[in-house]
């Protein structure tokens, strides 16, 4: 059993402490917006915020995440109000297949929280998620649009 605080709610989940957080989120908490891509913290599809920091949830165990504030893509909006990154993604039609975009959006939201006006070099350094459809050009444009708003 583990107590995880996800999107503001503390859940008691029947899950072993060494289970990767990704699978506790997807299978035990039932929040499927966070995606499995590689399981080895390479692709970033499973990115969530842990105490506000973007992290790859496949590489963190449940026991490491206990007691911390976990935010998934489902918890990024404030009630009915979408986060500015989600707004920008819709305005610029960023997603293609969309599978990597939950992780991409979480990574970008954390970057903008830290650096509201990131340079291209900041983006290059912080956003290391894989997108096989190739949405990078729209991702970069959308980040700059948010930053200049």
């Amino acid at each position: 059993m583990a107590n995880l605080t996800i999107n503001g709610k503390t859940l008691t989940l029947d899950v072993e402490p060494d289970t990767p957080l990704l699978w506790a989120i997807r299978e035990n908490a039932g929040l499927t917006g966070t995606k499995y891509g590689c399981g080895i913290a390479q692709c970033g599809a499973c990115t969530v915020h842990i105490d506000g920091v973007a992290m790859r949830s496949c590489g963190i165990s449940v026991s490491e995440a206990e007691g911390k504030k976990i935010t998934t893509i489902e918890g990024l909006a404030s009630g009915d109000t979408l986060h500015k990154v989600q707004d920008a993604w819709i305005a610029q039609d960023v997603p293609q297949c969309g599978y990597c975009q939950s992780g991409m959006i979480m990574a970008v939201a954390a970057l903008l929280n830290e650096k509201p006006k990131p340079t291209d070099a900041d983006i290059d350094e912080a956003i290391t998620n894989i997108c096989r459809c190739g949405t990078f050009q729209q991702v970069r444009e959308a980040i700059h649009t948010i930053a200049s708003a």
Partner: peptide, 27 residues
């Protein structure tokens, strides 16, 4: 024109094969 399938792809609501849930389902 804007794509018709974008919103759910930004909120985590879009259902991919990996997300399908059925009552009593095993993995």
């Amino acid at each position: 024109v804007k794509r018709l399938d974008t919103v759910d792809k930004t909120t985590g609501a879009m259902i991919y094969g990996v997300d399908v849930k059925l009552p009593g389902m095993l993995n």
